[in-house]
Design a protein around this nucleic acid. Sequence first.
DNA 1: GGTGGCCGTCAAGAGTCCGTAAGGCCGGTC
DNA 2: GACCGGCCTTACGGACTCTTGACGGCCACC
Lengths: 233, 233
Amino acid sequence: MTAGATGPTRVLVVDDEPQIVRALRINLSARGYQVLTAHDGTSALKAAAEAKPDVVVLDLGLPDLDGADVIAGLRGWSTVPILVLSARVDSSDKVAALDAGADDYVTKPFGMDELLARLRAAVRRSSSAADGEQAVVETSSFVVDLAAKKVWRDDGEVHLTPTEWGVLEVLVRSRGRLVSQRQLLQDVWGPKYATESHYLRVYLAQLRRKLEPEPSRPRHLVTEPGMGYRFEL
Amino acid sequence: MTAGATGPTRVLVVDDEPQIVRALRINLSARGYQVLTAHDGTSALKAAAEAKPDVVVLDLGLPDLDGADVIAGLRGWSTVPILVLSARVDSSDKVAALDAGADDYVTKPFGMDELLARLRAAVRRSSSAADGEQAVVETSSFVVDLAAKKVWRDDGEVHLTPTEWGVLEVLVRSRGRLVSQRQLLQDVWGPKYATESHYLRVYLAQLRRKLEPEPSRPRHLVTEPGMGYRFEL
DNA sequence: GGTGGCCGTCAAGAGTCCGTAAGGCCGGTC
DNA sequence: GACCGGCCTTACGGACTCTTGACGGCCACC
C-alpha cells in the first residue's frame, strides 16, 4: 500500500561493482521492482533527486564520496529508506552509517533472500508511515477519501452506511479494473456469500442514487453484464 | 502509536536468558532509556499492551511462544518498532521474522555498539514518522493540549479521567479520519478488549457530556454507525 | 413472438447498533 | 472504617440498517 501513486516500487541501487549491480538488478526486476542504478555518490544523489526512488540500496565503498556523506546528502531533503551494503564488518562502521541516518546495514557477502526481506521491511515501514495522506480519489461528480472514510458531492458531504462503504471501497481501490461479483461479495460480505449477487444489485443502486448525477445512467459505477462492476474516474 | 512527546524512551526487552537481559538493562539504562523486561512471549504481549513501549527488543528463542507468533501478536494492534535478537544465523529465519513484521534482525553474539545503533535507528524512524503533529488542537468549543494532557472549555479547564483521556487522545491524534471501534478499543484498553464496544458507548457519552455544547447532538465527537468514531474540528 | 436469464427498483419486517441512566465494585485517602 | 472517584456492567427504548421478496424492463437466444 504505497502512498498515493500506484505502480511498482522504485529501487535505486548504488554500487561501483558491476557484478553486484547486475545481481541486484536481476533479482529485483524478477520480483517486480523497478531498478535504477548509479555507480558513484555524485550520480546517486542526482538520481535520487530526479527519480524520487521508494528505497535506496547504498554501497559504502564508492570511488568519489564517503558513504556517510552520501547518507547525509540524502537525509538533507529526503526520508527515503536507505539500506547500506558494505564489505566492512567493523562495528564502528555500522554505527557510523546507522547514526548518519541509514535504516539498515548488511555486510557483504550477503544472502539475497535476507537482503530482499530487509528491503521489504524497509519499504513496508515507509509506506505505512506515509499512509493516510494521499488516499483521495476524485471524479467529475464526487470525491472519495479512503483514509478518512468520507465522500463529498458538489452539494456537501454524503453519508454512507458500512456496507455501502465496503462496496465502494473495494471498487475504488481497484479503480479502472473490473471486479467480479464473486470477488466483491467475498470482500464485503465474506466467503459464504460469494453467490448472493442480489445484494450487489441493491447496494449498487443505493450508491448510484447517492453519488451519480443520473442514477439511471451511471458514469462511474458501471455494470459489466454477466461479469461484475467497475469504478471509473 | 508513539506516546506523545515527553519522557525517556521506553524499551521492552524480551528474552529468557538472564545474562542478556542484564547486559541490555545495564547498557540501556546507562544511556537514559527506561527498560522494561519480560521473559516469555505471553508476558511480553501483556507488557507491551499495558506499558506501550517505544521499541521492543525481542529474542526469538522463547520458552512458550514461537517468535513469529509474538511478532504477529504485536503487529495485530501496534506499529511499535521490533528489533529481533536471535542465535539462529539461518537466513530463512531472518526472512520469516522480517516478513512477519519485524523491523530489524541481529544475530547473537552481537556487538553492543551495533545493537544500540540499530535501536537508535529504529526509534529515530518511528518518532520522525509521528512527527509533524500539532500538540494543541482547537475546536469551536474546546481546546486539547496533547502534550500537557489538558482540555479547556470556554468556562475553564475540564477534568478528564485517564480512560476518558485515552479515548480522546486516540481520536484527536487521527483528527478527521475515521477510527474503527476495534482500533480504538485496542489502543486504549489493549488487544484483548477489541470487541467490548459498549465501553465506547459509555465513554463517548461521558466525553460528550463534558465537551460538547449539545451532548445529544455532537459536532466534534461523531459516531459513524457500524464503523467507528471520528473527531472533527 | 415467446422464454429465460440478468439487472434495476421498491417496500417492509427483522435484526443490529447506539445513547442513556443507574447501580455495584474496587482501590485510594483521610 | 467511612468516603469518594473512577471503572465496569447491565438494561431498555429508539433509530437506523440489512436482508429478503416481489415486480418490471431489457436483451439474447431459441
